[in-house]
Write a protein that binds this DNA or RNA. Structure first.
Length: 600
DNA sequence: TCTAGTATGAGTGACGAG
DNA sequence: CTCGTCACTCATACTAGA
């Protein structure tokens, strides 16, 4: 859970024989994203992984690495590392101290006894908050009804009393962990009686993922509920240990997440494991079109919550395909008013006059960090001027391709131009001049805007917080950028009591500070400059100072995930994108501290 | 030293023909 | 089902000039 790029680097560097050697990079080491994710997913600590690679060389096969790490654990040499068991239970949301204590008492291999020891701590919570699965607007529950429950229950006639009792306990344990009775029963039935609790939880998570992806994201008209659901379950049965790796994330079409108001297919309820129900709420964002396996990893590290993929073109005039993982409620969402302009011509009326009839675009593509050069727009002008009247087909194609690629709009006869920064601000839902002045260069504005949230989209998701926090909200904002989340909350008129913002770029910090002052915010703004320096102790101090955080919001760097990167699109192990694991670390600290603060 | 301008593909999914 | 085609993508690195 708390894997950091820094951690890997430090470990590898310190164990290197040559201190002057350049810091080895995971990629340079030939260490693939998948391999890393697989090992982490198996519960091995980063230290162990790094050590095993050092020992076996970068080109060693995964199985060799695993063997080596296994030796470490069997030799009990992992005292300084978090064991698989610790990671496993931390991943379930138990506190570190409790976990270590329980493992010490029962031994690392007795997972069930550890779990039972841990459960009383949450039982009271679970009893206070009985597991009531929210009613699904989609007919998942209906398809449940089709299942013959009696066949799932273990009859005393068929099973020996011990086995029955054991399963009964497991069923209760799973329910206490936040899974529905149905899911728990199904898992017990499908996985058999000799599997451990963690295998059962894996099975349920995989089934939930499969179910939610299939049903939440499928085109409503194309849904074939119970037939397909049953089929999927049979498939899972063949691979009871199937993790989410084996269930690739599919991007929905249309990419509307849980839906939009006044549009067909709106979903207003979903079931989340009890353990991730907020507060604290969290909201994580990144590019939808990441390399294969990335979203599976992200989802797995964020409590197996399926990402909500939304293309902002359904909310404004520019595309922005993003995935959001959050534990926010999804009922009673509402859009910001006034809604943004929906088409290019509405957003930029002056372009209509010059828009060629053969350019059929009504929406712009994604706003990126770079813009077209003057040379390019001049080439377009020359090409069109060479053919007065309707240009030939190949010229049209060239021009249209370039317009799509560089997001050009028509600002004069034969004159295509890239968007100006203030036009980007408009499309992204920021106030005019939000990024202007204060020492920021034009290029930096493009870069900051290209890396930002689309405010209307984020605000639509965050709107559910308004009724929940009428007196205001404490926000921990990671990778703040130009403050898309803060602007969204402000435009939703949700008072921000406290915002602790972490942002590395100085110009972006200045932008947020200016915004804070210009909008006469009454709350406190704390600006920090590096997530890696936000230690666990510091987080807890801040939480004690401000009374905890209600929302942890942020989109970690996409540099190594984005399609536009031709140099270092190395996935989640990339230098910048690996900061995702910092998000996980910080979120987990906030969650644990919140739980402790609520208990005391 | 800083800024702006410019060139630099590949990975991925959708779609349709065969 | 496979294959080819198409469209799209929160970018990086180098260079020239102020």
């Amino acid at each position: 859970m708390t894997i950091t790029r820094v951690g890997i680097r430090m470990m590898v560097t310190t164990s290197s024989s040559s201190p002057t050697e350049a810091t080895p990079d995971l990629v340079q080491m030939g260490f693939s994203d998948e391999m890393f994710a697989t090992l982490v997913d198996m519960g091995f600590s980063v230290e162990m992984i790094a050590r095993a690679i050092q020992e076996n060389g970068p080109n060693a096969e995964t199985s060799v690495i695993i063997d080596t790490i296994s030796k470490y654990t069997s030799n009990s040499e992992a005292s300084s590392s978090k064991s698989k068991a610790i990671d496993h239970f931390l991943g379930m949301g138990f506190g570190e101290e409790e976990v270590i204590k329980a493992i010490h008492e029962h031994g690392e291999e007795n997972m069930e006894q550890i779990l039972n020891a841990l459960l009383p701590g949450v039982v009271s919570e679970a009893q206070k908050l009985p597991v009531v699965k929210e009613e699904d607007d989609i007919n998942w529950s209906e398809s449940d009804d089709e299942i013959d429950y009696s066949s799932l229950m273990i009859s005393d006639d068929e099973k020996d009393p011990d086995s029955s009792l054991k399963n009964d306990n497991r069923l209760r344990s799973l329910v206490k962990m936040g899974f529905s009775q149905l899911d728990a029963s199904l898992a017990l039935e499908r996985c058999g009686e000799n599997v451990s609790i963690d295998e059962l939880t894996d099975f349920i998570c995989a089934a939930q993922m499969a179910r939610e992806f299939k049903e939440f994201y499928a085109d409503p008209e194309e849904q074939k509920p119970r037939h397909d659901v049953k089929k999927r379950r049979v498939e899972i049965k063949r691979e009871p240990r199937a993790s989410t790796d084996d269930e690739p994330v599919r991007l929905p079409n249309p990419m509307i997440g849980f839906g939009l108001p006044n549009e067909p297919g709106l979903i207003t309820h979903r079931s989340l494991p009890e353990i991730v129900k907020g507060p604290p709420y969290f909201y994580y964002e990144n590019v939808a079109l990441a390399p294969k396996g990335v979203w599976e990893t992200i989802s797995r590290h964020l409590y197996d919550i399926p990402p909500e993929f939304v293309d902002s073109k359904y909310l404004c005039a520019a595309a922005r395909k993003r995935g959001y993982v959050h534990n926010l409620p999804i009922s009673n969402r509402y859009q910001l008013q006034p809604p943004p302009k929906y088409t290019i011509h509405e957003a930029f009326p002056l372009t209509k006059r010059w828009w060629p009839t053969w350019d059929s675009r009504t929406k712009l593509n994604c706003i990126l960090t770079c813009t077209a050069s003057a040379k390019l727009t001049n080439r377009i002008r020359l090409a069109l001027e060479a053919h007065p009247g309707e240009p030939p087909k190949h010229i049209k194609k060239y021009v249209i391709d370039q317009c799509r690629k560089w997001n050009l709009v028509w600002v004069g006869k034969n004159k295509a131009a890239p968007l100006e920064p203030d036009e980007m601000e408009n499309l992204l839902g920021f106030p005019r001049n939000h990024t202007r002045g204060g020492g920021i260069s034009r290029t930096e504005r493009f870069k900051s805007l290209g890396n930002s949230f689309q405010v209307d989209t984020v605000a639509y998701h965050l709107s559910v917080l308004k009724d929940m926090f009428p007196k205001g909200i404490n926000v921990l904002s990671l990778f703040t950028g130009i403050g898309g989340g803060e602007v969204a909350l402000h435009r939703l008129q949700i008072p921000m009591k406290t915002v602790v913002s972490v942002e590395k770029t100085e110009v972006n910090r200045n932008i947020l500070k200016d915004f804070w002052e210009q909008t006469n915010q009454k709350g406190i703004l704390v600006e920090l400059d590096d997530v890696e320096e936000l230690s666990n102790n510091k987080i807890e101090e801040l939480m004690e100072q401000f009374g905890g955080f209600d929302l942890v919001i942020g989109g970690s760097p996409c540099n190594n995930l984005a399609g536009g990167n031709r140099v270092s699109r190395s996935g989640l192990v990339g230098e910048q994108s690996s900061l995702f694991f910092e998000y996980c670390r910080i979120l987990e600290v906030v969650r644990e501290k919140t739980a402790r603060m609520r208990r005391s």
